[in-house]
């Protein structure tokens, strides 16, 4: 009888836990699934979770961009490539070398342990100032302070588009 009714704060916490769950399950599926399409599905789940995390970090804009770009573009592109290049990928799974599996596991474990220790041992100076997540300030910063980077990014994207076209072109019309 003394289980407290979940209030708003609890609800937020539960939603957060769900997001963490999505992220981690998605990540696990993405790097362990036998079929590449399922890996992409895992990636999508993971990205949705990450978008949720961003939302909790007071940046709804970035969260939505995460969905838009990663789910709507990157995941779709990867699935296209899978459909094109690996129709029978399911045969090709399995431990590649004798060492790769354990080796990967050890590396990943070490990395994870190291980072976690680093995160926990360091005494982070948590600032009281919280970003307001507003799009306006970000837009202003992008066009003033980071204008150069912004332009460079657009050039990179343009180059990427053209380069991708050139590499993948088959020359039907020639």
């Amino acid at each position: 009888m003394n289980v407290p009714l979940p209030n708003a704060d609890h609800l937020v916490g539960i939603v957060f836990l769900i997001m963490i769950g999505l992220t981690i399950t998605g990540g696990v599926i993405a790097c362990n699934a036998n079929r590449l399409v399922r890996a992409v599905a895992g990636l999508v789940v993971c990205f949705v979770g990450v978008a949720g995390l961003y939302y909790f970090l007071n940046s709804p804009f970035i969260a939505m961009m995460q969905m838009l770009i990663y789910v709507g573009a990157v995941a779709v592109t990867i699935s296209f490539a899978i459909m094109f290049a690996a129709p029978e990928e399911s045969k090709k799974h399995g431990p590649p070398g004798t060492l790769a599996g354990p080796f990967g596991l050890i590396t990943a474990g070490l990395l994870f342990g190291g980072f976690t220790l680093l995160a926990l041992k360091t005494d982070w100076q948590v600032h009281a100032k919280i970003n307001d997540g507003s799009v306006e300030t970000m837009g202003k910063l992008l066009l003033t302070e980071y204008a150069m980077v912004f332009e460079l990014i657009s050039i990179v994207l343009l180059t990427a588009i053209i380069g991708a076209l050139i590499i993948a072109r088959r020359g039907r019309s020639s």
């Binding site: 978008a51 969260a63 939505m64 969905m67 838009l68 789910v71 709507g72 995941a75």
Partner: peptide, 11 residues
């Protein structure tokens, strides 16, 4: 937000 959710539909 609506566009972001809509992009899930594509996949």
């Amino acid at each position: 937000a609506i566009f972001a959710f809509a992009s899930l539909g594509g996949i």
